Simulated assay, not measured.
Amino acid sequence: MTNPCDCDIRLIRIDEVIEITGLSRAAVYRMIQKGEFPRQVRLSVRSSAWVLQEVREWAFSRVSPTGLVD
């Protein structure tokens, strides 16, 4: 199976999402419901993960050009 975008995709679990963003577990899921955070990818019936690059892009979008949070 080949990757159509020819790039590495790394999936991360909720604990790493929390570490990267500084958000609580509840805040992550609340923001997903509001459409304000990347949705998780379903891996199986009881397992999901996030695309690392999407979480990083979200985090970078939260920082203004001066490096201060808006």
Rank of each mutant, 00 (worst) to 15 (best):
R13E: 13
C7F: 12
W58M: 09
V28Q: 02
A26R: 03
I9G: 12
R46A: 04
R30Q: 01
I14V: 12
D70F: 12
D70V: 07
E57R: 14
E19A: 15
L23F: 03
I9N: 08
Q40F: 07
S64K: 09
R25E: 10
S47E: 03
E57K: 11
E36Q: 01
S61F: 13
I20W: 10
K34V: 00
C5E: 12
P38H: 11
S61W: 10
A59H: 13
T2I: 04
L23E: 00
E16W: 01
D6M: 13
Q53P: 01
M1P: 08
G22A: 08
S24E: 09
R39S: 09
G67K: 10
A26D: 00
V55H: 12
R39K: 11
Q53W: 01
R56I: 06
L43N: 01
V63T: 11
L23P: 02
L23H: 03
V55G: 13
I18F: 06
S64I: 03
V63M: 15
L23Q: 05
A27Y: 02
I20E: 07
Y29F: 03
M1Q: 08
W50T: 07
C5G: 13
T21K: 02
V63E: 15
I32G: 07
G67N: 11
I20A: 01
R42V: 00
A59E: 12
C7N: 12
L23S: 05
W50I: 02
Q40P: 04
P65N: 15
L68H: 14
G67M: 11
T66Y: 10
M31I: 01
A59N: 15
P4L: 14
E36K: 00
S64L: 10
L43D: 00
G67H: 13
S47P: 00
L23R: 07
R13C: 05
V41I: 09
T21A: 03
R46D: 04
V69Q: 14
L43M: 04
W58D: 11
Q40G: 07
Q53D: 05
S61D: 09
I9P: 09
V55I: 11
R62E: 11
A49I: 08
S24I: 08
V41Y: 10
E57H: 15
I12N: 06
Y29P: 00
E57W: 12
S24A: 15
T66S: 14
F60I: 12
I20L: 06
G35A: 03
G22R: 14
D70N: 07
C7T: 15
Y29T: 02
V51P: 07
I20T: 05
S61K: 13
M1S: 07
V55C: 14
A59T: 15
G67Q: 12
L23W: 02
V41S: 09
Q33I: 01
D15M: 02
M1E: 05
C7S: 11
C5A: 15
T2D: 11
I18K: 05
R10K: 10
L11N: 04
F60A: 15
I32C: 05
P65K: 13
W58C: 12
R62T: 15
P38E: 13
